[in-house]
Design a protein around this nucleic acid. Structure first.
Lengths: 223, 223
DNA sequence: CCAAAAGTGTTGGTTCTACACCCATGG
DNA sequence: CCATGGGTGTAGAACCAACACTTTTGG
């Protein structure tokens, strides 16, 4: 991608940048300049002394011209699987942007996660890990909100959760749970979308902390 | 720790190995051979081509002579914080062993996590991350079971959860939730512990998968 | 018998889900 | 006026925490 010259570097920072396009998750890939018609997750070798987070953020800026709405480290990938370059270890970051406000630089394209081109085995594992991270942290961090613009309707929010969870949700239950969590604030704007009654716009503005007292949960499925 | 000679290496694998001693969490530290009375989390520089997991496992073998009951990557630590050596990036692993069956090699000692000696800032951050990982994954993975011997009483299991969660749990509710999850199987052994009625021993043997249908949860507290 | 720890039944309150219903708008 | 999507009330089920209770051992 760049710094291809420095062969001695032994680790990279790779960026799994995701967005929601319609009712599908999409991931940002960069065209591989050397090999034609090959794609890869954006990655770079940190400059000497550069923090890992900073390197991930710079990779995002190169693609979008702005910082993602959410960034989180997924982990380090090393095992047997090969990287686009001769890198020993790659530190993967998950980043999220709302699709509405994202404008791509040349050489970058969105691909639906269900329909990705060939990737290096290591980067394939990163994408796998990214989707698992999203699912597992969906109830602990405002993942869904970072994939939406600053204001949104409750139906849009619900559709985002349904997309990320991969299942339908009940409208009334969804809104009651949302209200109990004190996460959104209504604005005085409304949006009329063709048919039907206009929807009120909300913004993400968490107010209360969760109540701590709750028993144990045994929600795991593997040994 | 070893391979101190190879200055060119730019990443390490560090092992946060934890156990439960009585009613306290403890972590394994290695005496620093070069500087007297300094301690550090066990770490090593992977051999060329060695997988990260394998390096973590070898570090555990050096300390215990056996593989941990649980191993999981925490993440890569790079930012400003210094490592014992001049390493750019350290990949941290969390590992768990039951205290009953663990025998330490020379040069290694358990320290209560509440009362650790001075560590490098980066390793201090790893320990912090390890405890957070434990708490956040306690309901998704059999963390508590990996800190117990193969058979245990339900009271011991409950005490382990109370230790990890940092709060008291209700006995009847705990057992009902456990029964509903189909995670343990009774053995035909009993243990008499001084006073009181003997307790039946159980083993970890998950049978059912969790039911998938459950609404959304908004359990997060930070923006 | 008494203290201590294991193990279980019951009950009242909270939370969840599904259904039903009303509201506002475009065609 | 009717189809469509937004938004809300309520009842039955499921869940949960606390209490009370029985059981079985050691002293």
């Amino acid at each position: 991608m760049r710094d291809r010259s420095s062969k001695s570097a032994s680790y990279s920072v790779d960026l799994v940048l995701m967005t929601a396009m319609g009712d599908k998750l999409a991931i940002l890939l960069a065209r591989n300049s050397s090999e034609r018609e090959r794609w890869s997750v954006p990655w770079r070798i940190p400059q000497s002394g550069e923090a890992l987070d900073a390197a991930a953020n710079r990779a995002a800026h190169d693609a979008l011209g702005e910082s993602p709405a959410w960034t989180e480290q997924i982990g380090a990938f090393g095992d047997g699987k090969r990287h686009p370059s001769e890198i020993d270890v790659s530190v993967a970051y998950l980043a999220l942007v709302p699709h509405e406000t994202a404008t791509l630089r040349a050489g970058y394209t969105w691909f639906q996660v269900a329909d990705l081109p060939a990737l290096s085995p290591r980067q394939r594992a990163m994408v796998e890990g990214a989707t698992q991270t999203i699912q597992s942290r969906l109830d602990q961090a405002p993942i869904a909100f970072r994939l939406l613009p600053a204001t949104f309707t409750l139906s849009e929010l619900q559709q985002m959760y349904e997309l990320l969870l991969g299942k339908r949700l009940h409208k009334a239950s969804f809104r009651r749970a949302l209200q109990a969590a004190w996460l959104v604030e209504p604005t005085d704007e409304w949006r009329s979308e063709g048919r039907g009654r206009p929807a009120q716009l909300f913004r993400y503005l968490p107010k209360k902390r969760r109540r701590a007292h709750r028993g144990v949960r045994f929600d795991f499925l593997y040994p």
